[in-house]
Every structure is written in structure tokens, then in C-alpha cells.
């Protein structure tokens, strides 16, 4: 977990996730590459449809955050490609209690585990729903 590869990988991963601001055209499908995670404890990379989440009505600050006294004080105009300060790994480093793996799992599962009324197109709920094996 504390290996160098781990941190390098997550920084790279954050780059991929944060590439492009929502103001610009987003590449719809991002690949969250978790395949270089903890030794023996890796799952296939997650294809993440960013646009789909925007289309579903989520605002930027529903996911992107910078908390101060329990309040999300993130300035949306900072959500730009290449801004290292707003990358997930800027706070969720490998040594932080909420390291990137936990941050991602918490952020995604926070919604994906909730019971949904609209059952027609249910989002993935279990591990393999996101970490799809080819």
C-alpha cells in the first residue's frame, strides 16, 4: 500500500480523472486504472462515464469538493485541466487515512449503494459492476 508504485499510479489516475474541465468538451468515457493497486489486491480498471453523471443532473460540487468546516467551498472555476491543486490526490495521498482507493470507493459507493426508486436503469451496485472483467 505504501509502495512508490501505488502513489505514482494514483497520481496518474487523478490526472486521467481530472483531465479537462466540465466547461470544455469531456471525453465521455474515462478509464480509472486501478490495475496497479495493492499487490494481489487489484481489480480491472473502471470505465467511468463522466458525461452520464452530468446528464443525470449531478452538479460539479456533488463530487468535486474542498471542505472547510464541513462546507464545500470549492470554486468551480478552478476545475480546469491541469490544475494540480484540485486533483483528488492533492489531499487523498497514499498516506492519508482516506487514501485514493478509499476516496474513490467512498465517493462512488456513497450514491451507488443507495436504494433506488427508478429500477429501469439501475447503476452498478456491486464490485464487478464497475470493475468489469473483460
Amino acid at each position: 500500500m505504501k509502495r512508490l508504485g501505488f502513489s505514482v499510479f494514483f497520481i496518474a489516475l487523478t490526472f486521467i480523472l481530472m483531465a479537462g474541465s466540465p466547461l470544455m468538451a469531456q471525453s465521455d468515457m474515462m478509464l480509472l486504472d486501478s490495475s496497479k493497486g495493492r499487490a494481489g489486491k487489484k481489480r480491472p480498471p473502471v470505465p467511468f462515464p463522466h458525461n452520464l453523471h452530468v446528464e443525470k443532473g449531478w452538479s460539479c460540487k456533488d463530487c468535486h469538493h474542498l471542505y472547510e468546516k464541513g462546507e464545500n467551498i470549492l470554486d468551480e472555476s478552478t476545475l480546469e485541466e491541469g490544475n494540480k491543486e484540485i486533483q483528488c490526490s492533492a489531499c487523498h495521498g497514499p498516506k492519508s487515512r482516506l487514501h485514493l482507493e478509499r476516496a474513490y470507493h467512498g465517493q462512488c459507493l456513497g450514491c451507488h449503494k443507495k436504494p433506488l426508486k427508478d429500477r429501469e436503469k439501475a447503476p452498478p451496485r456491486y464490485c464487478g459492476g464497475c470493475h468489469v472483467r473483460k
Binding site: 451496485r125 464487478g128 468489469v132 472483467r133
Partner: peptide
């Protein structure tokens, strides 16, 4: 784990 058959149903 192997994601055999219909994954959601198996889960």
C-alpha cells in the same frame, strides 16, 4: 468473482 453468468443476479 469471475463474473460468470449474469453478474447482478449472481451477486
Amino acid at each position: 468473482y469471475r463474473q460468470w453468468f449474469h453478474y447482478e443476479t449472481v451477486m
